[in-house]
Design a protein around this nucleic acid. Structure first.
Lengths: 202, 202
DNA sequence: AATACAATGGACTGGACGGTCCATTTTTGA
DNA sequence: TCAAAAATGGACCGTCCAGTCCATTGTATT
């Protein structure tokens, strides 16, 4: 199956994944049906099962991977060069903008509650996303250390982990309440605490 | 309907809610059926619709309220008396313990992705929970101010919001990856930053 | 005791939806 | 050019499951 995809086949497959992602964002995972996806992507049911032989769950996992890849891409190029406090602020703005635009739709979150424990590979997608995200933040902190703006004895990984958690929490509160105040607080306070760690004598 | 519940009726109703909560925790919202709940609570389908006339969603909302009430209860009495750094540490331990025990089951999170936007009252439950939680944290910070352990010029609400976001994020990462390291980092770093805010000259 | 109403039991239904199957068309590669 | 394999179309099926309906049992109140 996997190596034998024609060029035409590949485009159809990705059309399905992208269309499915759109449908899931609009209708939510729970209420999106294969028929919705067929309608959106102009495909037939046999095509769906041709490209995703083990059915809906396999398609959902593919969509999850697709969405996961977008999360970090959307934060570039800012996330990739956190080497000055101005860069950190710009990145902050992009994150807030992205998630405020997304509103109360969480493609990844809902996907994993649906597919989550049933499909083994699903969790791996989230774990990899979190690792890459945290590593980017850690790289930013190290860049600030290298620039002499942060002390070397900082526990970089722990700070990155805490910051990532704060962002995730801000997003999840945004998802469930519709308000971005917590995301803003998390980012502003997180960056402020990071800066403060530079001068504190503790 | 609502005032006309016999004593017997009330006990049956709460038996349904509690049993349904247990079923949802075990099987997940997506795959839990009314038949599962009937089996667990030794009730018939007519009883379910007798006590929750508008059907499954109404029952799910009731379960959500039930679970939401438990969230803060489980953190007591520690959350209620954050008046020393030792108290903060004890509260930290309880939160970690609770969520590590809960593992990757999130009764509330999944409930809202299921019922969320369809039911109007659902979101209100989460919002109220978040408000009460944040207010408890804010009260703790103010208590520390009153005790002279934190400066008065602290932005209490923002700190409480950021801390709440960090916790939520730690929990949601725990849910999706199965690891509690981020929750621990969020709490430890959050409390440490709070303490540091006491001596920083910024 | 009688009546009214709440509580319970359980059969039945209607539709939604994932998945299967086979026929047909298109592309590939020798 | 011509088979072999991939891509597509779409009818069909089986099951699951929320919700309905009516009959029966229990329980207050007068």
């Amino acid at each position: 199956m996997r190596g034998e995809l024609t060029a035409k086949g590949k485009t159809t497959r990705s059309r399905i994944v992208e269309g499915a992602a759109a449908v899931l964002r609009e209708k939510g995972v729970a209420s999106a049906t294969l028929d919705d996806i067929m309608a959106r992507t102009s495909t037939s049911k046999s095509q769906l099962f041709h490209y995703f032989p083990s059915g809906k769950d396999e398609l959902l996992v593919a969509v999850a991977q697709f969405e996961a890849d977008r999360v970090l891409e959307d934060q570039q190029p800012y996330l990739g060069c956190l080497d000055s406090w101005e860069a950190w602020e710009q990145w902050r703005d992009v994150v807030i903008k992205r998630y405020e635009a997304q509103g109360d739709r969480c493609p990844l979150g809902s996907l994993f509650l649906q597919v989550g424990r049933s499909t083994p590979g699903a969790r791996a997608i989230v774990i990899e996303l979190m690792c890459r995200w945290q590593e980017s933040l850690a790289a930013g902190i190290r860049a600030m250390q290298a620039a002499g703006r942060l002390p070397d004895e900082l526990d970089v990984d722990m700070r990155a982990a805490a910051l990532l958690a704060a962002i995730q929490g801000g997003v999840s509160i945004l998802l469930s309440t519709g308000q971005s105040t917590h995301l803003r607080a998390a980012l502003d306070q997180g960056i402020a605490d990071l800066r403060r760690a530079g001068c504190a004598v503790v």
